[in-house]
Simulated assay, not measured.
Amino acid sequence: MMTVDVESALAGAGPTDRAILAELHGRLATAARDRGLLDISYRTLESPLGSLLLAATPVGLIRIAFAVQGHEQALDELAQRVGPRILADARPLDGAAHELDEYFAGRRRAFDLPLDHRLTSGFRADVLAQLPRIGYGTTASYADVARAAGHPRAVRAVGSACGANPLPIVVPCHRVVRSDGTPGGYAGGAEAKRMLLRLEAGPA
């Protein structure tokens, strides 16, 4: 995997060197984008759930990873499944970062972003296609989603599909709960799921 991480490169540099390196990195990113040399651009975003990795292809947002999932591991998986030319480049992800900031501030209820769904196929893709139909501030059970996806007995498989969702938050697997109303599992951890549900529920 070929990655360029500007934050690491700048870590030990003085102010002047940091400015020069940042400018050179910006030029590199722009040239790579303009020439179609990038498979994936990525950045991190600080959020109420901790640091989120955002990654995009020229098609759209392809991956959101929580810190507990391992950002480096997520990038390695992207390199294997999508392509090895990966660059830390915030600009293509400005829109996604802005919409996520609005969501966490309670000012956005739906996302309007181009998405790249190539990481999911088959039954898992059928499951994830149902999730945006679960409205903001509401929930559906794993059984509900299994029925909506046309496989009413595949409740556990729905749980697996939600757990493997490459675009959590934007594709709202956090709105899928157990039949008794308890949250159930979540790739970002149980507390992250509870936080998202509380956010969408609004003031008590």
Rank of each mutant, 00 (worst) to 15 (best):
28 L>I: 13
30 T>K: 15
31 A>D: 05
31 A>V: 10
31 A>N: 13
32 A>P: 00
32 A>S: 06
34 D>N: 04
35 R>C: 03
35 R>L: 09
35 R>V: 01
35 R>S: 11
37 L>E: 13
37 L>H: 04
37 L>S: 09
39 D>Q: 10
39 D>F: 07
41 S>D: 06
43 R>M: 14
43 R>N: 11
43 R>P: 08
43 R>I: 03
44 T>P: 05
45 L>F: 05
45 L>R: 02
45 L>G: 01
46 E>I: 04
46 E>L: 11
48 P>M: 08
49 L>I: 07
52 L>H: 02
52 L>S: 07
53 L>F: 04
54 L>F: 12
56 A>L: 08
57 T>K: 01
57 T>L: 06
58 P>Y: 03
59 V>Y: 06
60 G>R: 13
60 G>M: 10
62 I>A: 10
63 R>N: 03
63 R>S: 10
64 I>A: 02
65 A>V: 11
66 F>S: 08
68 V>I: 08
68 V>D: 13
69 Q>K: 07
69 Q>S: 12
70 G>M: 11
70 G>F: 11
72 E>L: 10
74 A>T: 11
74 A>D: 07
75 L>I: 08
76 D>T: 08
78 L>Q: 06
79 A>R: 06
79 A>G: 15
80 Q>F: 11
81 R>P: 01
82 V>Q: 13
82 V>G: 09
85 R>T: 06
86 I>W: 04
86 I>K: 01
87 L>M: 15
87 L>K: 12
88 A>F: 13
88 A>R: 15
89 D>W: 02
89 D>L: 05
90 A>T: 09
90 A>M: 08
91 R>D: 13
92 P>N: 12
93 L>P: 00
93 L>T: 00
93 L>W: 01
95 G>N: 12
97 A>K: 08
97 A>C: 05
97 A>E: 09
98 H>V: 11
100 L>Q: 05
102 E>Y: 02
103 Y>S: 02
104 F>E: 06
104 F>G: 02
105 A>L: 13
107 R>A: 15
107 R>E: 14
107 R>Y: 07
108 R>Q: 10
108 R>E: 03
109 R>S: 10
110 A>N: 10
110 A>H: 13
111 F>S: 02
